[in-house]
Design a protein around this nucleic acid. Sequence first.
DNA 1: GGCCTTGTTGCGCAAGTGTATAAATAGCCT
DNA 2: AGGCTATTTATACACTTGCGCAACAAGGCC
Lengths: 215, 215
Amino acid sequence: MTSPSRRKFRREGEERRRQDLIEATLDCVAEYGLQGATLRTIALRAGVTAGLIRHYFPGKEELLQEAYTALMGRMTEQAKAALVVEDASPRQRLAAFVTANLNAPIIDARVFSLWATFIGRAGADPTLARAHREGYLGFRNEVEAVVAEVLAAEQREPDASQLRHHAIAINAIIDGLWIEGCLASEMFSPGELAAIGIKAVEAELGLVPERGEEQ
Amino acid sequence: MTSPSRRKFRREGEERRRQDLIEATLDCVAEYGLQGATLRTIALRAGVTAGLIRHYFPGKEELLQEAYTALMGRMTEQAKAALVVEDASPRQRLAAFVTANLNAPIIDARVFSLWATFIGRAGADPTLARAHREGYLGFRNEVEAVVAEVLAAEQREPDASQLRHHAIAINAIIDGLWIEGCLASEMFSPGELAAIGIKAVEAELGLVPERGEEQ
DNA sequence: GGCCTTGTTGCGCAAGTGTATAAATAGCCT
DNA sequence: AGGCTATTTATACACTTGCGCAACAAGGCC
C-alpha cells in the first residue's frame, strides 16, 4: 500500500487557475528573470505540476505574452486611476497624479524588474513594442488632457505643439523619477520624489508657486 | 585524405579575443535576451567555437559580468564626455550635455535593450545593483556640478538640498526622454527631444529664455 | 451510489545547456 | 626547418528545458 503515492489535488475553476498561473509567472520573472522562469518553476510557485500549464496555454510563449499583457494592464490602470480625483482643481489633480505615480504601489521594485525585463525584449519582439507604444501613448494622452485643463484654468492657450511638448516632458519627469525610486528607494525620504516631481512639472508648465509653498 | 576536416583557425592576441567575446556577448544579449545568449550562440557570433570561451573566462557568469561592466563603462564615459566643452558658458555646457544625451549614439535601441535587460536583474543581483548605483550617482554628481556653475553664473546661491533636488529632477528628465527616444525614435523629429529636454531643464532651474528663443 | 467528464498528474523524450577534457595545430623561437 | 607551447577545436557528459501523452481521480450529474 505504500506505492500509490500520487499527489492529491483540487480542481479549480478555469479563470482562477489561469490567474494563478499568470501571477506565478510574473513572480518567477521578477525573481529569477526570463531565463529562470521555467515551466517547472512556475508550476511549483502556482502549486501545480508543469504539465498542467499546457492545459491552459498553448505554450510557454503564450503564457509569457498573457503575463506581460496583464502586467501592463494593471500598471496603466493604476496610473490612470490616480487622475480621477473628485472636487479638485486641475492643478490639484495634476499634483495628485504625480504624487500617486511616485509612491507605492507604483514605485515598486518587483514591478520595475518586470517592466525592465520585458521592455528589454521590445527591440526584438514587435508584439512587446506595440504593447509598450500603446500604453505609453495612452498615458501621455492622459497627461496632455490634464495639462490642457491646467493651462486653461490659468487663462493660457497653448497650441497643439506646445501641449505635446509639455506632455512629453512631464511624462519623462515621471518616468525618470519612477525609475530612480524603484531602483534606489532608500536614497530618498518619503514623499521626496513626489515633491521633486511636482516642482519640476509645475516649472515645466510655468506655474507660479502657490502661496504658502516654500521656495 | 578526406577525413581530417578540422576547422582552420587563427590565433589572436589575448586582449583582442577577450574584447571580441565581450562584444559578441553584448550583441547576443541585445538581440536574443539573456536566455538567448548561450555560449554556443556567442561563440558563433565571435567566430570561434564554444569551448574557447572557457579559456578566457572561468564561466558564463563571469563573461556576462564583464560584458555588463564594459557596457556601463562605455555609457557613462560617453555621457560625461559631453560635458567637456571648451570655451562655453555653464549654461551652454548644460545645454550641450542635454543635447548629447538625447541624440545618437546615446539614444540607441541596442544600448537601451542591453540596459533594460541587465537592470531588470538588479533587484536580485546585488552586484548589478551596486554597479547601477555607482553609475547613477556619478552621473548625478556631474549634473549637480554643472547646475551649481550655472546658478552661480546667475548670481544665485542655492543650498545643498536645492542643488540635490535640481540634479535629481534633471537626471530624471534626461533619463525619461532617453527611454522614449530609444523605444520610439520615429515618434520624434530630429532634435526634438533635445529641444524638449533643454527647455524642461531650464524651466526646472528657473532660467529665463535666452533672447532670440521663441516662446 | 456509480458513472463520466475533464482537470490534473507523472513520466518520457529529443533538443539544448554549461562544463570538463583530450586531441590538434598555429605561430614564435632558435 | 623543426620543435614547443599555448590557443583553439572537437567531443563527451550530466543536467535542464519545453513539450507530448497516457493514466488517474475530483467532483458534478443521474
